[in-house]
Design a binder for these strands. Sequence first.
DNA 1: CCAACGATGGTCT
DNA 2: GACCATCGTTGGC
Length: 199
Amino acid sequence: MKLRKSDFARPTAELAKDLLGCFLVHATQHARLVGRIVETEAYLYRNDPACHAHRGMTKRNKPMFGPAGRSYVYLIYGMYYCFNVTSGNIGEGEAVLIRALEPIAGIDTMSRRRGVKDVRSLCSGPGKLTQAMGISLEHNDRCLRTDCLSIHTRDSFKNLISPQKSLRVLATTRIGIGRGIDLPLRFLIKDNPFVSKPA
DNA sequence: CCAACGATGGTCT
DNA sequence: GACCATCGTTGGC
């Protein structure tokens, strides 16, 4: 079952936690790629100098200022893409960066795109997962409830995964940023081997 | 194991 | 012109 509009209407740090265990799905003609979200980061509009929207709206960060539950994709370091879920009220630029997925379906396609066999290295980082899932700028600023890229509830895909233990969430500081480094806005599933970096 | 570094190009000052 | 929400490789221990 897909997330509904009300599922995205949460304070951004809460949404970042709630997205853990949910499934990101990219449905194309040839394949259905599915990954379970195991690591996220929240980026806030106020008092968060690491947030792209901290200094106001620009051409790039415009999706962050729109309604919650849409995509914000951008190019990083000239070679990778990062995928975010927009959050917060309209006019307040916030988002949740998806940092790692546990590959669930379409693993052959992911491996081919990544040029790697080890399943643990397919989606264990924000640039890796967009490459594996085939996410690029054409998927920017799209509705995540109705488009080919969508997010599904934690109890989805029971036929594809082993029964889940109760989900324990850890919070740490965020990775790869130079400002706002002390805020505990990174969230990950405890003991999950598919995160970008253990807690 | 790990820290350091280069690739690579758009964005913002 | 500096910076960047990254990654794979390299070279040292």
